[in-house]
C-alpha cells in the first residue's frame, strides 16, 4: 500500500496530507505544515520538546503516528494564542523570564496548559511533577514553576 490521505485539524484549520503509515505527527507538523514551533528533540519520547495537545491532552508528537490523529483536534504552540493575545501561560513565561534558549518552551507550555486544565490550583510540588517529563537544560526549572503557578492564578490559565 502507498501513502494514505488524511485530514488533520491543527489549530482550528483543516489540512489534507498524504503520508505513509510510518510518518509521525511531528514530521507532518514540521515538514509538511511548516509549524516548526513544535521541536524535534530526543525522538524517543523522553524530552517532551515535541509535546502537542490532542483533544486537549498532551502527547509526544514524535511517538504519535499521523494516521492515528485523523479528525482529532491538534493544538501546537502556534495555535495557543487567542487572536493577538497570548495564552496566560505564555504571558507568564515571558513576564517571569521562564525562557532562556526557548527550545523546551513550546512543549513545556503545552504540558502546563493541559495540566492546569486538570488541576487549576496546583501546588509547586504538583507543578514540578507535572512538567517532569519536559527537560530544560537552561533554566533550572525555578522560573518555569513560578510561571505556571502565576498562570494558575489567572482566570483561564488552563484554557486549551
Amino acid at each position: 500500500m502507498g501513502d494514505r490521505s488524511i485530514k488533520l485539524i491543527v489549530n482550528g484549520y483543516s489540512y489534507n496530507v498524504s503520508v505513509p503509515a510510518e510518518t509521525t505527527l511531528l514530521e507532518v507538523l514540521r515538514e509538511e505544515l511548516q509549524l516548526t514551533g513544535t521541536k524535534f528533540g530526543c525522538d524517543t519520547g523522553e524530552c517532551g520538546a515535541c509535546t502537542v495537545l490532542i483533544d486537549g491532552r498532551p502527547f509526544r508528537s514524535c511517538m504519535t503516528l499521523a494516521v492515528e490523529v485523523e479528525g482529532k483536534r491538534i493544538t501546537t504552540i502556534e495555535g495557543l494564542a487567542n487572536g493577538g493575545e497570548l495564552h496566560p501561560v505564555q504571558k507568564k513565561f515571558v513576564e517571569l523570564q521562564a525562557i532562556q534558549c526557548g527550545f523546551c518552551s513550546p512543549g513545556m507550555i503545552l504540558t502546563a496548559v493541559a495540566f492546569l486544565g486538570e488541576n487549576p490550583k496546583p501546588t509547586r510540588q504538583e507543578v514540578r511533577r507535572a512538567i517532569s517529563g519536559n527537560i530544560c537544560r537552561c533554566t533550572g526549572y525555578q522560573k518555569i514553576v513560578e510561571a505556571v503557578i502565576a498562570a494558575s492564578k489567572i482566570n483561564g490559565g488552563g484554557r486549551k
Binding site: G45, G48, T51, R57, P58, F59, R60, M63, T64, T111, A114, F115, R129, A130, S132, G133, N134
Partner: peptide, 9 residues
C-alpha cells in the same frame, strides 16, 4: 511510571 504527561498515551 515515567512522567504524568506520558500517562495519556
Amino acid at each position: 511510571i515515567s512522567s504524568p504527561s506520558l500517562h495519556h498515551s
